[in-house]
Design a protein around this nucleic acid. Structure first.
Length: 264
DNA sequence: CATTCAGGCAGAATTCGGGT
DNA sequence: ACCCGAATTCTGCCTGAATG
């Protein structure tokens, strides 16, 4: 089934389900509106809806929360912020309908229908979003937006310049810089941001032979740390706050400060 | 040119499991 | 009991195929 046909089938299924509930439905004339339908609540409130097809994969329902179009500059993506009230998601595999308010998530939301291998408090259970359970609309919860990490390339670049380290910045590689030490040895550096969790700085690592060292910028400690790729197998953390119990295996952040570790 | 669904990669946050 | 590293989950961004 092609994409357009599937989208139309979804709209038809949603319309049928709404009518089955006896809900008054208005559809816009033409196709130049940001919403697909308008429904009237029992309280007389009008809600603008965007209909989406839900994808069921690995026990999780996902759907696209933005529109995409193409212009001379390429693909353009636009979110529906302030333009609709909620998404109605129909999952063909399950034949189920879900109601998700636009202010319940930031940029994307996944609805889980099967138990995960590992519990996670951030899981959004599909049952909680089933249309039948949520209609008529009531007060809805608002999730806080996730906090992104600050880009690390710039602070690392500044530090290399401060230390008068000769380097070039590169794109499209797992590493961001190639820097030379005093002996002329080149080091491929990946810049990444770290955040303090339970007294430890954690940062994402890559399984790549093309990275010699990581430069980890931590905004909480306002410090840059240097960790060689061969210091760990898959991941490592740097402790910046003392633990309750001493442990010889602790990797102390102070021992990994860039200024004291360069050259690696 | 506009719109849909689909998939992949990487980042952020959290929990689990093995080692001490 | 506590620590660290590994594993897992959700999210953001991007690209592509297909169609009208």
């Amino acid at each position: 089934m092609d994409a357009h046909q599937k989208g139309e089938l979804t709209e038809a299924a949603v319309l049928a389900e709404l009518k089955r509930h006896g809900i008054p439905v208005l559809t816009p004339f033409g196709d130049n509106q940001r919403y697909d339908m308008v429904v009237e609540t029992p309280a007389g409130e009008l809600l603008t809806l965007q209909i989406k097809t839900g994808r069921l994969s690995n026990g999780v329902i996902t759907f696209h929360t933005k529109s995409q179009h193409t212009n001379a500059e390429g693909n353009v993506y636009k979110y529906y912020d302030g333009e609709i009230d909620c998404f109605i998601v129909y999952v063909h595999e399950l034949g189920t309908l879900y109601l998700v308010y636009i202010n319940e998530f930031d940029r994307r939301i996944s609805l889980r229908v099967e138990n995960p291998d590992q519990p996670d408090p951030s899981i959004n259970w599909a049952d909680d979003y089933e249309f039948d359970a949520r209609w008529p609309p009531s007060a809805h919860r608002i999730r806080s937006a996730s906090h992104g990490r600050a880009p690390a390339v710039e602070p690392v670049s500044e530090r290399l310049q401060e230390r008068l380290v000769p380097f070039v910045q590169v794109d499209d590689e797992p590493y961001h810089f190639v820097a030379c030490d005093d002996s002329g040895t080149q080091h491929r550096i990946r810049a990444c941001s770290g955040s303090v969790v339970d007294g430890r700085i954690r940062f994402p690592t890559r399984d790549s032979d093309a990275i010699d060292v990581y430069c980890v910028h931590c905004s909480e400690t306002e410090e840059i740390y240097l960790v060689a790729d061969d210091e760990f197998d898959q991941s490592i953390s740097l402790r910046v706050h003392p633990p309750d119990q001493p442990d010889a295996s602790i990797n102390w952040g102070d021992d990994h400060r860039f200024d004291e570790r360069w050259p690696p």
